[in-house]
Structure formats: C-alpha cells, structure tokens
Nucleic acid binder design. Structure first.
Lengths: 259, 259
DNA sequence: CGGTATTTTGAGTATCGTCAAGGCCAGTGG
DNA sequence: CCACTGGCCTTGACGATACTCAAAATACCG
C-alpha cells in the first residue's frame, strides 16, 4: 500500500498515518507502536459484544466494521461504519454500548487499554487529538441522523452516497474518473445498507433504480455506483451542505492530480 | 432551587453540580467559576449559529436548547436536546456544525474559550471528564439513531418517551408517582417533537393517541404523559434495553425515597 | 456449466404525509 | 364576568410512499 506515508511494513500499526497524530513526540509513538498487535477478523465475525468492557483500544487498519445494535425482534440496526484509521474501544471506563462486527475481512490494530491510557496521560497532545477525533465522530453520528430524518428512501440513499463520497474519500473506494463523475464502491451489502438507512433491502434497490432513472447515478455493478449529479443528490437529500463537502473533495482531488 | 448540592446563588455557575466534575481540585474549580458568566436566552432565540466558531464553551443551567440543522427546503431537523448540565461549544478548534437555539427560556453559563482551554491543559482530570462527557453524548446520538430507525411512528415516540425517562431523569420533569406509573413532562412542542422524530406534528399526535388507546400511556395534558407500561413501550420501540434503563431508574428512585 | 447467494421486480396492504377543518386553552378586552 | 382572538393540538379524508410476501433475474463461485 503506497498510502502509508511513513514507514513500510515494519511499522506494524498504522497510527502514524493519522494526520492529526503525526505530530506526536517520537518516543511516545514508539511506545504506542511497541504495545500494539494486529488482529485479523473475517467478514461477519464479532469484534466486540455490546455491554463488554474490552481491555483494549483499537484502530482499524483495513476493511469495514459495522457498529450495530440487535433489536428485540431479532432485526439489527446499524448506527455507523468504522473504516481505516477509525478508533474504537472505550478509554478509561464505560462499557461499549454497541456490538462491533466485521462487515468485510478486516485488520485491526489493538493496544492494551492500560498502556494506551498511560501514554494518554503522558501526552496531552495525544489526548487532545483523541478528543477531536471523538468530536468529529459525534458530528458524523449527527450527519447520519440528518439522513435518517429524510422521509423518502431515495433521499436517504442520496445522503448516504454523498457521505460516502466526502467522508470516506481517504479510503480507496472513491475512484475519481473525470470532471463530473465519481465512481463509488459501496462497501456493504444491500441488507446492511437497508439496516443503516432504516429500511428494507427491496426499498433500497428501488431507490437505487429511482435515482438512476432520474439520471443522477449509474449502477455499474450492484456495489459500484457512478455519481453523475452531486447537486441533484443533495437536493434529493434536502441537504445542500453535503454537496459542498463533495465539491471540496473534487477540487482537492484535481489539485493533487495536477501535482 | 434545592437541587444544587454545594453552594447557593453565590456559586454562580453550576459546574459543581456535575457528579463527574465534583472531584476536581478546588483551585481549578475556583478559576473556572471565576471565569464564567451567566447568559439568558428566551425561547426561540439563537444561541450559536451553525458554522460559527464561538469563543466560548458553555454549560446549560436551566431550560432546553435544541441542536438543529436547517435543510435546503426550509424545514429544520432537530438532532438533539441539551439540558441542565450539558456542555456545548467546541474546545480547541473546529466550528460548530449545528445551530443551537433555545427551545424554552434558558440560562447558560459561559466560559472564555481560551481560559477554559488553559484550565483544561492544567487539569488532566477535567480533560478526562470532558472526554467521557463527549463519549456519552456520542452514545446518546446513537440512541437517537436507533429510535429513528423504527418504521412506525408509535415506535419512535415510545423510544423517545423511554429516553426521556432514563436520560433526563435528573432534571425535574420525570415525576415519580407510584409503583407502576411515571409522569413525564414533554419539554418541547409537537412540531419540535415531530422534527426530532423525523415526521409531522399530525403523525405525532396520532401516535400519542394510539399509545393511549393501547393503554401504555395516559395523556394528562398535551405535554404531560403518564407512562403506564414501560415494557409495552419498549416492545413498541423494539428495544428492550431501554426498558432496562428505566427499570433501573425506578428502583433507584424507590431507594432514595426510602432513605 | 450448475448451484447458491444476492439482488431485483411485482402485487397487495399498511402506514404516513398532505391539506383542510374543527376543538381546546389562555390571554385580551369589553 | 364573559365573549373574542390567536396559537397549538387534534381529527378526518385522500393520495403518496414504503413494507410484506412471493417469485424471477442476476451475479458469484467452484
């Protein structure tokens, strides 16, 4: 993977990848890297059970984890996705409230909870980065809420696609093709997507094809979507702010491609 | 208000009320209290505009603030409520992503952002408390998401009522009456509640009366609900965990009443 | 090339959103 | 003290949308 800026395979845990964590004192980073170990999960495996108080803090290396809750009637609801670079596991105390499962095969970098906390106490910068991380996570959760508030499923799906474009851009599934189009790899299955959007797989399918009929997207494969009309999707989602974020992404991409 | 354990009106800002903050070194607390000032807002007033980077961190003293986003078509969506003891305003950097408005008349205790950050850097305990606070906020946001995922409005309303019972119990609107019943004061108007649940006021109204017809609640006044059947509500919401939290509340209340 | 899992489509029903009208309560002014 | 007015909540009727169940089509894998 050429994505990793510093350190090759020898740097087992990818913490240095974090832009926000990259300024941390070298010795602290060394301690962190020394205390970590990589763990592999295959799709569908449970990483942490809801209610547990796991003894580690972890960082996703590759793949997708889903944050979910199983409801009384057996249905599960997905409240978020964790991707490359996301942290999970609770620092200090408090149990995990949601089950974490691997949505795809995934690699996770684990730190002993005690060790992590010790390092945290020694480094206000790290603690601060962590806090900012959690704050942005909070905003993301509220973005999901905004999406869920949309009455029409097409609107929710439109919002989801835009979030995928803007937030998960760093990861390798938004493949920029040319001036107007973005190819998005939808990382989860239809049933999972349905649970995330608070609906059923049939409705998700219909919504995809409705957006295609409107000319806003092309369905290249069930899991590969070409976004043709960002503004249209934003209008459908009722949230023009999302369009702004994607536009930002596009200009950034253009710049980096020129460089 | 007899609610405040330590200090009367002389302790202008109610920070000491926080159970989690009460263990902080006295001088730090003094500094905090010295740097704060109370601000009043009347219902409907804007506290912070989305996109702003306000120069203060604040703590709600009384009343309700709503965290909301105005969508392209002019409708607004509410993503959360802030009550007595909740903190808002972003520490360190990053702008506020949602508009904050007073839902009722409210008092807010403001700290100079710089001052607050300085004190934060001097006190790992305070920073840690703040982090735990944000983490629980994150869980709350995900609870809202779970509620929003319910297809039937009655289910969402049931979930809302249970959250009101469990999370907002410390504030003075869950009035315990006797063994089986809880009287809940719904703090926001029907339109606001509709925006919070992602629906319309008419549907909210119908849902209230549907739950009443099922015998799960009594509508004493439009804004005063008697909860008769916690289990039933939890089943309607599809989330038995919520019932557990309310049960916990009930037993706690019973104990404290005996004492 | 066959078998399985996933996705898609179709038909019927339930639920919700919309528009419009009616009721309830509080505050105002006679 | 009572009628009036305005805001909010409620109710009713109708159309739009999504959910359910069932079956077909497609993609995936060996």
């Amino acid at each position: 993977m050429s994505v990793i800026p510093n350190g090759g395979p020898a740097t087992a845990c990818g913490l240095r990848r974090f832009p926000k964590l990259s300024q941390i004192a070298g010795d602290l980073m060394d301690d962190l890297e020394a205390s970590c170990h990589i763990q592999h999960f295959s799709a569908g495996q449970v990483v942490v059970e809801a209610g547990d108080a796991p003894d580690f803090v972890a960082c996703v290396q590759s793949g997708y984890l889903r944050l979910q809750k199983t409801l009384a009637d057996g249905r599960r609801h997905i409240v978020g996705l964790l991707v490359e670079g996301d942290l999970f596991g609770r620092v200090f105390d408090a149990p995990i409230q949601f089950t974490i499962e691997a949505a795809t095969d995934a690699e996770v970098c684990c730190f002993q909870r005690r060790t992590f906390e010790d390092i945290l106490l020694r480094s206000p910068e790290l603690e601060r980065s962590l806090m900012l991380n959690i704050l942005s996570e909070l905003d993301r959760a509220r973005d999901w809420m905004t999406i869920l508030s949309c009455h029409k499923i097409t609107g929710r799906l439109a919002g989801f696609l835009l979030i995928l474009c803007s937030r998960f851009r760093a990861v390798d599934h938004v493949v920029r093709v040319d001036g107007e189009c973005l190819d998005v790899l939808v990382p989860i299955s239809r049933p999972d997507l349905a649970h995330l959007l608070g609906t059923r797989r049939e409705s998700v399918s219909r919504a995809f094809h409705a957006l295609e009929d409107e000319g806003m997207i092309d369905i290249l494969r069930p899991d590969l979507i070409r976004v043709r009309d960002v503004e249209g999707l934003a209008a459908e989602a009722g949230d023009e702010e999302l369009a702004g974020r994607v536009a930002l992404l596009q200009s950034t991409r253009n710049l980096s491609r020129k460089a």
